[in-house]
Design a protein around this nucleic acid. Structure first.
Lengths: 216, 216
DNA sequence: CGACAAACTTACTGCTGGTAAGTTGGCGAC
DNA sequence: GTCGCCAACTTACCAGCAGTAAGTTTGTCG
């Protein structure tokens, strides 16, 4: 005889065990894993914590994601992809032929707004180091994707056409590093709004960036 | 009968078991732990890996450092402290009343030089996230120490006296983030020298910083 | 209605972080 | 010298968690 789901009249939540198509279950697991990892940290989270909260047992998660690291990687990939979508949307909104400073500000602003709306995803990204056993190529490739998106946008600006690749790449790294760090700082300074943060990053880096432009 | 150290004629390394005063042993453990953590990553390293390499058993390490996290924390603290010493030495060398840009450049340059000379320490710092179960106060305090050192130096510059604290703090975070990120990027770009990296950071951020100075 | 596959579970293993309870040996007091 | 004491160190263990092998259930298609 099976475990008789909902034997006694409606004992609420864990009642009827639901079956789900794989894709849907994967998404649910991802959502909950992101939550739990962000709450408790990667190390402190056990696979059973997640399994329990999903209403499923461990081996299923292992079948879908391979390992604990695999699950975290999937979470990070998802979060990064969301961030990229948000950033690209912001760029598209201002239009590709807007002045460079406007494009720049839009991207940075999108970042901080995203953090405000997806706090858990951000905590996740911070924990990236936890999994990186010897610079995991997966995570490295995600990073590259992020900077290259920014690179591509800058490269589209005619004003920067003459700037050598390596220098521009370095600048992009500066921007990304500045954004991440200010975002972390902001968690300690709740009175700093997303707009304030954007202003800080843009005003500090814009001087150097605009110097690359021939003559505005 | 004890394990008879060096029974057969000089079987090299693990021969005579050496006793050591606590302070010295702690230092040795720290040095080796830093190495192993950097090599294999925090997660993949077991306490026995370290114990074995030191030539000691686990419980001793636990007595001295409390836990695996404790050991990593100690490594990070040590690495950060070394970095701080290097930075402060560089500042002292140029003198407190040098032009702000010179002081700034000296600090950034010291950072990249330090990374070149202490690669393992840097990998360690990157792994900080691994241990941060819910923003460990210890690590948070180390961070604060770092930025406040930079803050103090900037505050000493008369030119920046009028800048509000919060804005200056934000700028400091931008600088730290930029340095860290460029350092990571540099591991993928061996042709970028420490001087190149310094130039990139200084030139990108200096524009914004100098705008804070009334009229130079 | 039967059978097949996808969704899911039970019941384990081995490794590793952590600990309790000893053992060893250097060193100062006499 | 030798005795005793404490710091340095070990052996032998436990608990908990990542990961797995081998089933069992259930929707669905012929």
């Amino acid at each position: 005889m099976p475990k008789s789901p909902a034997t006694l009249a409606s004992t609420a939540a864990p009642a009827t065990r639901v079956r789900m198509p794989r894709a849907q279950r994967e998404e649910q697991i991802l959502r909950i894993a992101e939550e739990v990892f962000a709450e408790r940290g990667f190390q402190a989270t056990t696979m059973e914590d997640i399994a329990e909260r999903v209403g499923v047992t461990k081996p299923l998660i292992y079948e879908y994601f391979g390992s604990k690291e695999g699950l975290l990687s999937a979470c990070i990939t998802s979060a990064r992809s969301q961030l990229r979508v948000a950033t690209e949307a912001a760029w598209q909104e201002v239009g590709a032929d807007a002045p460079l400073e406007v494009i720049f500000r839009a991207g940075v602003g999108a970042f901080f707004t995203f953090i405000d709306e997806h706090a858990t995803a951000f905590v996740l990204i911070q924990q990236e180091g936890a999994v990186a056993s010897q610079a995991s190529p997966l995570i490295e490739s995600i990073r590259e994707q992020q900077s290259s998106a920014t690179m591509a946008t800058f490269r589209k600006a005619p004003a920067l056409a003459a700037v050598p690749d390596q220098l521009l790449e370095g600048y992009v790294e500066v921007i990304i590093g500045a954004c991440e760090r200010v975002a972390v700082w902001r968690t300690r300074r709740p009175d700093v709004t997303a707009e304030d943060a954007t202003e800080i990053v843009v005003s500090s880096v814009w001087g150097g960036l605009s110097a690359l432009v021939p003559q505005t």
